[in-house]
């Protein structure tokens, strides 16, 4: 299983803060994005946004990053703290 978490505007647009997936057949973050985008038109539109950032196990990564069972993968908009 993999855990997927969403933050800020993304969490609100998806109306979802967290979900779990089997993760089978998913090799990279890009694969996961494709899988999530297939859920509905809304999800498709949101995951087509190139500004979206991703993290695996609390480290910022790009879409080519490989993923494995037990990972926590996060998607969120560009950060605006400080």
């Amino acid at each position: 299983m993999i855990k997927v978490v969403f933050f800020a505007a993304l969490r609100e647009q998806l109306n979802c803060s967290e979900l779990s997936l089997s993760g089978e057949n998913l090799t990279t973050v890009a694969d996961l994005k494709t899988e999530l985008a297939s859920k509905s038109d809304t999800w498709q539109q949101i995951f087509a946004n190139s500004a979206l950032l991703s993290a695996v196990n609390h480290n910022m990564v790009n879409s080519e990053q490989t993923i494995k069972a037990g990972d926590e993968i996060a998607f969120f908009p560009p950060v605006t703290g400080g």
Partner: peptide, 19 residues
């Protein structure tokens, strides 16, 4: 911190709320 730390601000204004 401004560009890497995962914080997000939602603003409440007289015109409404926005990220």
């Amino acid at each position: 911190l401004k560009v890497q730390a995962p914080f997000w601000k939602k603003e409440s204004t007289e015109q409404g709320n926005n990220w």
